[in-house]
Amino acid sequence: MSILLKDVHKAFGSNRVLKGFSLEVQPGETLAIVGQSGTGKSVALKHVVGLLRPDSGEVWVDGKNVGDMDLEGLYEVRRNVGYVFQFAALFDSLTIGENVGLGLRRMPELTDEAISRRVRECLALVELEGYESRYPSQLSGGQKKRAGLARAIATRPEYLLYDEPTTGLDPVTTTVIDRLIIRTREELEVTSVVITHDMESAYRVADRVGMLHDGVIRFLGTPDEIQACPDPIVKGFIEGKPELLEGAG
């Protein structure tokens, strides 16, 4: 079982963002969703964990329909899904250790010692050993993103959702984060969805790349396939040529 969005429509007032968005993520794969800013990539991702509900259409995670689930059901699904936010969304008032351990506190089977051990393991995985007692304000942008990733993987989820994990980072830190995404998939065998508009990053981490345009998936294929795609909308975006996008209307 995996993630399936079927004919999802979502509007905010008169602004129709998703207009029949459909996508299936295969178990164990990393799928990148690319597209211009404001096309609804993050909106689509938020549907997967029920942070947004579709106006119509279906959202399935692990064989369960998230779209019409009650809160208790959603909490069950969310325990199996890690979410890495665009700006990390670390809790300012908690230390990095407390941030990473917060999700673990919802697992009654874990003792305090087990939680501390798991927090240290996760921070080691993202190369932030010894940062447990620091606060988010004491970390750089790249370190915050890594701490956000550590928090997302702490509960050992089967699914990981990344919302623009490399936006605003320098090229070296971007590569570090990309390697972490690949390492996380290999070591934890998770199914991942990565939202990005950094094509180099998408080619590095993804098995398949989907391009979101005008509320629907315009193209879905491997990194090689998308680079060979003749569609001017796709080509214009991945090659950074606005004239192609404008020409295609």
Binding site: L51, R78, V81, G82, F85, A89, R106, R151, T155
Partner: peptide, 11 residues
């Protein structure tokens, strides 16, 4: 800053 959304995703 999406911290409330983050709380929700942590169940």
């Amino acid at each position: 800053t999406e911290q409330i959304d983050a709380l929700e995703t942590l169940a």
